[in-house]
Amino acid sequence: MSDRTETTHARTRRLPQINPVWLLLAALVAGIILMNPGFVEPTGYMNFLKRAAPLAILAAGQVYVITSGGFDLSVGSLITLVVVGSSMLTNNDPAATYWVIPLMLGMGLGVGVVNGLVVCFLRVPSLIATLGMMITLNGLAFLWSGGAPRGYLPDTYRFFGRELVRDVPLVGFIPVSVIVLFVVVGILAWLMHRTNLGRQVHAIGDNPVAARLAGVAVNRVRITAFMLSGLSAAIAGILLGGFAGVSTDVGSGYELQAITAAVLGGAQLLGGRGSVFAAFGGALALTAIFTLLNFLGLPQPVRQVVQGLILIAAVALAMHRRKQTGT
């Protein structure tokens, strides 16, 4: 990217633009390596990436909604619904995977469409609209399964979340979920930062009225953002179900973690600013925080306190920087 012919002026201006989330991530990873040198082995960092994958994908989708000026609280229960629904539909039949997975991805898109329609046309604030969706989907997951899912997830389904690609040069092996992670984040980042859709998402988040006047189909873009978030939740659900199997509360808490990750990556709540890569970094950083606290042997309560403090500090710092740079 940075050409050697670039003026020093441009370079100094670019320097402070390194997103602090990468510095935070680097510091955390250094801390983890210090605590546990095994982390530099492929088993160490691949396990880490595998664990971070669902959250990172979720955050990459969430950042679309946040940048366009909304929230999506429904992703956690959508994950649950995907896992529970898959176990109901596959019904122990390995061949069912090939239609169940596309169906689940379609369901993710569908939930996104409904969220988007409710927000755009019923004018329900997204916080409430997706809160309602969260409660509804959770109920649906229970209703569908009668409270206890009926089937196992076949190995074909679990391939994406559980299997490894072996005999890879350099690293030895790569979990399939890590490949999925890079592909999904790559596509979402390209959409956000290299296409018209991404510019429009930013525009309506920045100033919806101005965007509309400039000819942006505000509703269509917002609905698309919710659809991408729903799709990313469905993918995250497939990975989580694959990694750990069926349970009825797989997704709980993921909505707030996804928002936290996006915010750590510098996404601005209520819109106008957000980067898929930085949200990815935010998700890795959040996972790294949890890992580090685990290695330090700190109990759950301390983890909560630290998470809370970091969350506030990250946003306060971002606001401080924004004030200083005057943007």
């Binding site: 546990n36 669902p54 989580l240 750990a244 199997g245 349970s247």
Partner: peptide, 17 residues
């Protein structure tokens, strides 16, 4: 927390040690 993913991660971490 009764969470499958977390359980699996915790056990994996212990196995590395």
């Amino acid at each position: 927390d009764g969470d499958n993913a977390k359980t699996k991660s915790i056990v994996e971490d212990y196995l590395m040690r």
